[in-house]
Design a protein around this nucleic acid. Structure first.
Length: 339
DNA sequence: ATAATTTGACCCGA
DNA sequence: TCGGGTCAAATTAT
């Protein structure tokens, strides 16, 4: 339970930071978005932790997640609302975001809208009675969402018995390929398909560690027809593996990021570091240029990592998450060798 | 050599 | 039967 608290503290910190830095980032929707996303993920992680604790202590009904998520959802809603209200009060985003020039207004509106929508994690709404309808409209059945159980007869192939939620992300434009937005996990593409009535193909990803840890997490990435700069990411299943065994952690907390962005401090020790680079050229150029393919919102992950490290080290919470993760990571690495 | 991606085929639910 | 989701062999990248 202690680690849950750490996760919660982290989330609170992020939310607090976001609030504090709101005026500074009001004219930078991308970083703003990133920051909100960070908060969102922090709460999501905390939720996941709670669930793990809960499920390990007693195999009871999973409806607890509903409560947790509702709290998270409303917070995110509030955040997104406030944040975008704030944004609208300020001058529209700087002119450096060339990829958004034509639709800048539409997009920001859409981002606002989508973010609000995204907090309605579909699977969390099955509590009420009217939710079945919603689920059905989403192509899910109640039974499917309740839990993940092995199909009695056919162990093979799909069966969307996984939770499903959709989020919108600004799509980094690398040529005309869609770069799935980074979310701190590593994904492996296993399919792509043309979808009827959709202009762009849908890509299917699953957790890289699916095989090793039987991580059920999957996601679909679908570029929107009318606004290709936005991708709709549908997540299914929750990660049971540790975040980023090989990938960078989630977005840097913005204040930390801003604080560090000017200082090219080298990161502390780590077995895995990304090239230290800061790229503040937000979508500048015509996209396809030679950009860091992994950069998002104009900030390379090195910064994310750096910020992460700073955050952890600076955090007042006694045993940092690094400690928490250390052991499990080692364990996993160990397992990996055994496999 | 190993890992990731691509892509046509296959499976399953509606 | 059709469309979406997944598999898996071939291909490409690291």
């Amino acid at each position: 339970m202690e680690e849950v608290m750490n996760f919660m503290m982290h989330a609170f910190e992020l939310a607090k930071n976001l609030e504090l830095e709101l005026p500074n980032m009001a004219n930078n929707p991308e970083i703003l978005f990133s920051s909100i996303h960070e908060v969102e993920k922090a709460y999501s992680d905390a939720k996941e932790r709670v669930r793990m604790v809960f499920s390990s202590s007693s195999a009871q009904h999973e409806t607890t997640t509903t409560t947790t998520t509702k709290g998270f959802g409303s917070l995110a809603q509030i955040l997104s609302h406030d944040v975008f209200m704030q944004k609208n009060q300020h001058a529209p985003m700087g002119g450096s975001v060339s990829s958004m020039h034509a639709h800048s207004m539409d997009q920001s509106l859409l981002m606002q809208h989508s973010f609000d929508v995204s907090v309605f994690l579909e699977n969390k709404m099955i509590n009420g009675s009217g939710d079945a309808q919603l689920l059905r409209s989403k192509g899910l059945q109640l039974g499917e969402v309740q839990g993940i159980e092995a199909p009695p007869s056919r162990p093979k192939k799909r069966k969307n018995d996984l939770e499903k939620r959709t989020e919108m992300f600004p799509a980094p434009q690398i040529g005309n390929t869609e770069m799935p937005p980074e979310d701190g996990f590593t994904w492996r593409k296993y399919g792509q398909k043309e979808i009827l009535g959709r202009k762009y193909p849908r890509s299917y990803y699953r957790c890289t560690h699916q095989k090793l840890y039987h991580c059920p997490a999957k996601k679909q990435v679908q570029r929107l027809d009318d606004i290709p700069n936005i991708v709709e990411v549908t997540y299914r299943g929750e990660h049971i593996c540790h975040k980023s065994l090989t990938a960078p952690s989630s977005y840097p907390p913005l204040p930390t990021l801003l604080a560090n962005i000017s200082t090219t401090t080298q990161t502390t020790d780590s077995s895995e570091r990304w090239p230290l680079a800061v790229n503040l050229d937000l979508g500048g150029g015509d996209g396809s240029g030679g950009g860091g393919s992994n950069s998002r919102f104009g900030v390379e992950y090195a910064v994310a990592d750096m910020a992460d490290a700073m955050f952890n080290s600076g955090s007042s919470s006694g045993n940092s998450m690094e400690l928490l993760f250390q052991s499990s990571e080692d364990k996993w690495e160990h397992d990996e060798k055994e496999d």
